[in-house]
Nucleic acid binder design. Structure first.
Lengths: 335, 335
DNA sequence: CTGAAAGCGCTTACAG
DNA sequence: CTGAAAGCGCTTACAG
């Protein structure tokens, strides 16, 4: 069975294709009687508009593309959900791409979104995509950067003060008596990791009796946390840290698993602190202290900044910086 | 700055638009020298193909659409990841839609995918979408159903034997001494819920001393599990169940939170068993016994069945049914 | 309010 | 191996 087209609908309704199009896109231009006949013909034939043709002629695609660092991380599903909710109100579909922290995948999704001429792109960048994003914007696509203030002067962005998050984490661990802190996460090139680490370092350096080291990982998943922790536990006892600061909660959960496996007590022997405050941090074997980011609100605000940028390409660039919040739980509470 | 088009590339390379198109789509038809000039022109101008035009003319969209019941559930992110991996090898982008168990959202994504004339659709259905899926297929779009054997005769499908899963769960709880079992999940119209419940009921009815009740929820998230459990704990002690079978792990985590909040001991006072075996089940406050589904493999197989269906629309319908596996943990181990 | 004509940017036969 | 012409299915001015 051939797929119905505008001309089939037009013939059935006894009008021209132009009128069918108007009934669909500008119903106020069409008389009520005609509208009803067109609608009936559409229902009869099961007509479904061909988006490629519409888009080609109309010259624009309402959809918005989004690229996240890890689609399996509840933090990013929350951000995406916030963005999707706001975009749905604007009648804009969200196309979600997962870079999995890999530059090649990031580039593939950027290709795809550009080829589709999406109206806008929301991106949590992995690689140095700024030059590319500039070209994207110059071709007329709005861009908003999530979770990064690099490129801050050129693109609107939504982020969290990650240095402050690192400071909060370190400050809390020190106040609980930690003296040897290991920061676990990576890759080190990722802006978020750098800032969380630097914030922690800055705070720890103010305490002469405390020290900090950085264990870099390839990824930010549970497996990475487990492996890093295993390597720490392979050391002689007196060279082990007394606190772990994982740069996200998935890594923290991995750390917790390795610690439990080796019967290291948390927090008595080693304290553990995560980042993002995903729902599972609170439900963990030992509930995990974590630095909360307002994930859904960040997604919503990113979508809003994108709306502003698409509606007025000349509009001033805007940066929304949220403040992180420390949520204290058992994994760092020694008394 | 205007966006570069084929004709601009052609002019710059000193060839015709047709040759540019051939260089892009059928490089074997073009001489090496011409290919190099075209490529140089493309790079120079930063040309990006307009997918809408390509698709309109070529008459097909390589992309595949997927609709899941809950994009925030790690089970579905795992399934999606499996599918995406296989589709990537076939050079097919995956467009992911989240129905959030809502029929209106499911319909919206089906609209979107149909308008985009995707090559295929992978769907875990919420509502009664079979009539619609029939029309979709009749228009030439391949369809594979995930996680449902309803409609089994018409569409290829990938599923797990959920009745068996329910039986495994009930059998284990009974063997651990449970006598009053509450099944928590919903909505009751969802095929997975029905089968898991029915499997459990069948097994429990074989034990005259045991009873089962069903607490239906609106959704399958943590909040639903928490609320249902609260209502159970509001009962007099002797009317409480001694075991909870949550129809997925998110619900189970919610149950666990409510139980902990009321200082009910797990498994001593009430046992808890979940479904899906998401990674977080093992890391929970009390590690949760769960029925495992091979999520990534299911996604991969769904993509493979879709490939078969797109390559030969006349190909026979195929059903892959995986067997569930019980993973026993602390939440049900009374000794 | 309605319709005839043109054209969005590409690719596909086809002729050379 | 290369190019001129046609056309994919829509929507947009424009004329009536």
């Amino acid at each position: 069975m051939a797929v119905a087209q505008v001309r089939d609908v037009a013939k059935k309704a006894g009008v021209s294709p132009a009128t069918v199009s108007n009934a669909l896109n500008h119903p106020e231009k069409v008389s009520a009687a005609t509208l009803a006949r067109v609608q009936a013909a559409i229902d009869d034939l099961g007509y479904i508009r061909n988006d490629a043709a519409r888009q080609l002629r109309a010259g624009s695609n309402p959809a918005v593309g989004m690229i996240v660092l890890d689609a399996a991380n509840p933090y990013f599903t929350d951000v995406a959900q916030g963005a999707e909710q706001h975009l749905a109100e604007l009648r804009r579909p969200l196309l979600l791409g997962n870079s999995a922290q890999r530059e090649d995948r990031e580039a593939t999704y950027l290709d795809l979104f550009e080829q589709q001429r999406v109206a806008g792109i929301l991106i949590a960048p992995v690689g140095n995509v700024l030059p590319r994003l500039r070209r994207v914007r110059d071709r007329g696509t709005a861009v908003v950067i999530i979770d990064r203030n690099a490129g801050a002067d050129e693109f609107s962005s939504v982020s969290v003060d990650d240095k402050q998050g690192g400071r909060l984490a370190a400050d809390h661990l020190l106040s609980q008596g930690a003296r040897r802190i290991a920061v676990i996460g990576g890759p080190g090139g990722l802006r978020q990791v750098q800032h969380r680490l630097r914030g922690a370092q800055q705070r720890i350096q103010q305490s002469p009796e405390a020290s900090v080291e950085f264990l870099e990982t390839d990824a930010m998943d549970t497996e990475s946390g487990r492996r890093s922790t295993e390597s720490l536990l392979a050391r002689p006892l007196h060279e082990r840290p007394d606190a772990l600061f994982a740069t996200n909660d998935l890594v923290a959960l991995g750390c917790l698993q390795a610690l439990a496996h080796h019967r290291v007590r948390v927090p008595e022997d080693i304290m553990l602190l995560g980042y993002d405050d995903i729902a599972f941090a609170a439900s963990a074997t030992i509930p995990i202290t974590s630095v909360r980011q307002p994930s859904a609100r960040m997604g919503l605000q990113a979508a809003e900044l994108l709306r502003l940028a698409t509606e007025d390409p000349q509009a001033a660039v805007q940066h929304t910086v949220f403040q992180p919040e420390l949520i204290v739980r058992e994994s760092t509470s020694r008394e």
